[in-house]
Design a protein around this nucleic acid. Structure first.
Lengths: 182, 182
DNA sequence: ACCTTACCTTCCACTATTGACATGTCGCCA
DNA sequence: TGGCGACATGTCAATAGTGGAAGGTAAGGT
């Protein structure tokens, strides 16, 4: 049974924070950085959201705070309760996928444009995706995989980015074929 | 610095509604159904959200309403302004991808479980994905593609679902390999 | 000393989204 | 007649997420 009250299913920001803290203690700022790098493609979050949630988490006893002076950095660490909550979320609550894709939604309605416009749009989309893909692959290639250069987390996130972008690119190309005039 | 500033933003529910209405007029209930079928994998929305947004859209003059009696069905139709807004959104506002994946986030933190638990979790995930994939493929195969059985929208949505699930399944299998004990 | 550049936290107003609850019409069938 | 299920809309409270503004600290260079 969950330690946290309330029956809401979502709240994954909370668990993302607990998950990051399960590795080692960190400040809000550290976590913010991690969200902007490792988790950017998986669960984006803003600064205001992170600090707010950290306060709630501390109030709920899932993490502890240690301050360095009255206005200084605060370091947060996972408590036993927090780890339990993280495990509970992982194994006992069903994943719910609510993927909202702005990009896909656009392509869905491309028929309101002229064929030329639609085609140009898709070409642009494919190019953008290809760029992202190349950038990711370059990053991927620059890492010495046998040297522990990246944690398993980072490696998985990277690979996910690669695969995700490959799919997006291929899909945009396929969609372009479907809408092509003639 | 960009010339165009001001509120850029999500608000894609609004455009999803405009897009659906660009095909033909419909009631809130009709749109609700469309969201539950065609758009379920692209931009999920609830009933309350849809009715609320339709009212706002009508207030903004982007759609018109025609009622059938005091408590009956209301039919909404796109205005010229609405179509212009839809086209504007498509061609002039940059797509912003904010994909939040509950599933991926979970896999990201699987290391807090025992290897056996983690492995079991991934196996379950892969199985779930495979089921969805099979269901989608069955649906796909049941359609007579040469008979106009599905609009280009529906076809694209279906194909997207297929590709998305294929990717999820393959990815889950790949991730299982990475975390496998030994 | 002054300035810049990280580092670090808090607060606020707003929009989006969820998950109920409430209400009513209509046609069908036992 | 009474109930059931599909059709259909409206409203609410609560939570999640966005996009800033506004601070304060600490270290290093000129």
């Amino acid at each position: 049974m969950s330690i946290v009250e309330g029956k809401v299913g979502g709240m994954s920001l909370r668990h993302a924070l607990l998950g990051l803290l399960s590795d080692h203690p960190a400040s809000g700022y550290d976590l913010l950085k991690l969200f902007d790098t490792s988790l950017a493609n998986v669960w984006p979050a803003t600064q205001s959201q992170i600090y707010t949630e950290l306060t709630k988490l501390a109030d709920a006893g899932l993490i502890t705070v240690s301050t360095e002076g009255p206005r200084g950095r605060k370091e947060y660490a996972l408590t036993d309760g927090g780890l339990a909550e993280l495990r509970h979320w992982l194994v006992e609550t069903p994943p719910q996928r609510t993927t909202r894709s702005d990009v896909l939604l656009r392509v869905f309605f491309l028929s309101v444009l002229t064929p030329a416009q639609g085609h140009a749009y898709l070409a642009g989309l494919a190019a953008m995706s290809a760029e992202e893909h190349d950038a990711l692959r370059a990053l991927h290639d620059s890492i010495d995989w046998d040297d522990g250069g990246l944690s398993v987390h980072g490696r998985i996130a990277l690979e996910y980015g690669l695969r995700f972008n490959t799919m997006r690119r291929e899909w945009a190309e396929w969609a372009a074929e479907q809408i092509k005039p003639g």
